[in-house]
Design a binder for these strands. Structure first.
Lengths: 245, 245
DNA sequence: AAGTGGTCTAGACCACTGA
DNA sequence: CAGTGGTCTAGACCACTTC
């Protein structure tokens, strides 16, 4: 590939060509791309340019590089989670979609209240809250990290139970009912530590679900956030006329 | 920065250090980072390594490089859009948040039905649909692209009106009421063309909002998707007990 | 004209994988 | 062991911005 007078950079021309080839099925999902060495020969460019082209594809989530093995076309399967369902039904949601969900508890502790949480739950900074962190997996692959904060005065009576099992059913059993949940959805980039625990590239897209749950008395008792891998999860919601406006 | 025996790559160590500095406020929003030349001297590494470190920060959405000028710390302000509100109220939403919204029509045409649309709207491939594409901006900065498909048999009577103004109010005026909207939210990477029109980096996170709107007779009449810049927009929803389950 | 980032080259060494 | 991708160097030229 001799540099033509066109203004597009070489690495972009190459990655666009490969992207086209992937889309056309020349390289199937799971299949290996030609090695850097081969691509250097095919396009007649330096290794750095080839690597830059591949980096473009990685950044678009199309391929995945494995050291010592090669570059492979990624599958684009996502699982869908209903925004309305609390995390308990996650297993059922996934099962319907042919995936096996599991949740690994990372930590449960009584901690000083972070500023944002204090604001959401109407607490002062001196107060403490329960903080539960868990890792959510489907088919053994990590898809999300969830960090939940619970008011101590609510959870105190059954703290041990909370720790051992899931939050919503525990609350339910103890007569605490969630009337309303305010949700905010956005997306961000993976920081180095998140990238590591979620097994994705630095800066890869993450779906962020921030939620605050209120009782019938309109008291906020739970808030938290779920950080999901953008390449693995999507949310579904149904809005009816009553809900709108 | 001499390579210690630690296993972390140099470029990561440098970008992490800079990330820390940004977080700590050593470099304020809008401020310029030291030039590549200066960073080479400070960390005692080659230019490629410095560039790689900066690329890491760009990929995390923290800084923005401008050719001939320098590297600058990005602002992290997002505007929030209510998922429940149709696009008409976008202006009001934005105004409340101190931003000026504008919508630029890109195209309106009667086109052959794409497969996905045919499935959503219950049409055959031979049918045609109206397709409206629009660019959504806040304060002159593009934040989203919206592509909407409308059933021809519904919109036929007032096609001209549809083209000239916004969809929902036009339908409303003509007695078509939306009873239910099914929404799917996920995130993806910007492809080269999207990156260009939305003025973001290749592979930057995008929020994808796919929607299908139904009439009271449970007939789907509109479907489409809004692709938003992940660094500029978030969605808000409120879920009440009735909606859940 | 000086300074900035963007592209590209040639070449070296390393770490990991798999036969 | 050969082949793969990951890191890093030194150096060149270009396009753009600012003075």
């Amino acid at each position: 590939m001799v540099k033509t007078s066109s203004s597009a950079p070489l690495h972009l021309m190459i990655s666009e060509r490969l992207r086209h080839d992937i889309h056309r099925g020349k390289y199937a999902v799971g299949e290996q791309l030609p090695s850097e060495h081969q691509l250097m020969a095919v396009f007649n460019v330096s290794r750095i340019t080839v690597r830059r082209a591949i980096a473009n594809l990685v950044q678009q989530g199309l391929v995945e590089a494995q050291r010592g093995r090669g570059v492979f076309v990624k599958a684009q399967h996502k699982v869908t989670r209903s925004l309305a369902n609390p995390l308990i039904f996650f297993d059922e949601d996934m099962e319907r979609q042919g995936a096996i969900a599991s949740i690994r508890n990372l930590s449960f502790a009584q901690v000083p209240t972070p500023d944002e949480v204090a604001q959401q739950l109407g607490l002062r900074r001196e107060d403490t809250v329960y903080c539960q962190r868990k890792l959510i997996l489907t088919d053994g692959v990590p898809v999300a990290i969830d960090i939940t904060h619970i008011r101590v005065d609510i959870g105190q009576a059954f703290a041990r139970e909370l720790q051992a099992s899931l939050i919503y059913p525990t609350l339910d059993r103890n007569g605490v009912s969630i009337e309303r949940v305010e949700v905010n959805l956005e997306c961000t980039h993976a920081t180095p530590d998140l990238a590591e625990t979620l097994e994705i590239a630095l800066g890869a897209p993450l779906l962020v679900n921030r939620y605050t749950a209120y009782t019938a008395a309109d008291q906020p008792i739970i808030c938290g956030e779920t950080l999901s891998r953008g390449d693995r999860l999507s949310y579904a919601v149904v809005l009816t006329k009553g809900t709108r406006g």
